[in-house]
């Protein structure tokens, strides 16, 4: 990374001016995952302003962000912290740091592999792929079987006609990174 301040780099990439934050903590107050976060959102924003990239890339919170946008909706300075979280997630993956919650990027990856291959997401397929990669087969097994019995999970995948177009969109996205 360049020697530029973290808040400047994040501003360039996400358009979020985190240095506007005056620490009112409305983001952490409304955040649904605050109870499980190791660093609260207002602290994340503070650490960006203090240029503490290492601490940020190793924390759990960036992976726990559910992208619910409550923080963005309530921020008096119009900072969308969820976009800062996304930036930090990508950075953590690019820099190959030890991920605090490794199953979550595998979840996203399994989902997107299904979309890249088929053009649509095949739920039974991507969920199985996630469970194999993370060795979590037994979690929610009873619920999964119930959902199959109820016809809630379609077992056979379908592919869109112009699936090649989706693959091209994905390769454009890789060039963007």
């Amino acid at each position: 990374m360049s020697t530029e301040h973290l808040s400047t780099v994040i501003y360039q990439d996400t358009d979020q001016q985190v240095n506007r934050c005056y620490g009112c903590m409305k983001c952490s107050g409304g955040c649904p995952i605050s109870f499980a976060a190791d660093i609260k959102i207002h602290e994340i924003i503070r650490l960006v302003n203090l240029n503490q990239l290492d601490k940020l890339l190793q924390c759990k919170t960036i992976w726990l962000c559910a992208f619910c946008k409550t923080c963005k909706q309530r921020c008096p300075n119009d900072i969308d912290s969820s976009l800062v979280m996304d930036w930090l997630k990508s950075k953590a993956l690019r820099d190959d740091v030890a991920i605090a919650m490794p199953n979550i990027p595998i979840l996203y990856q399994s989902f997107l592999q299904s979309v890249e291959k088929l053009g649509r997401v095949h739920e039974a397929g991507w969920i199985s792929s996630y469970k194999i990669k993370t060795k979590t087969y037994s979690n929610d097994l009873k619920l999964g079987l119930k959902m199959i019995r109820k016809g809630k999970l379609k077992l056979l995948p379908g592919r869109i006609k112009n699936y090649q177009q989706i693959r091209k969109i994905f390769s454009c996205a890789r060039k963007e990174l």
Binding site: T14, F67, L83, D86, K89, S90, P105, L107, Y108, Q109, F111, L112, V115, G119, R120, V121, I160, K161, N162, Q165, I166, I169, F170, C172, A173, R174, E176, L177
Partner: peptide, 20 residues
């Protein structure tokens, strides 16, 4: 021939993908 919108996953991989 509609495709997946990217839902909860695309944005966390790439801001571009979540729009494209």
């Amino acid at each position: 021939d509609w495709n997946c919108c990217g839902a909860t996953s695309a944005h966390s991989a790439s801001a571009y993908l979540a729009v494209a």
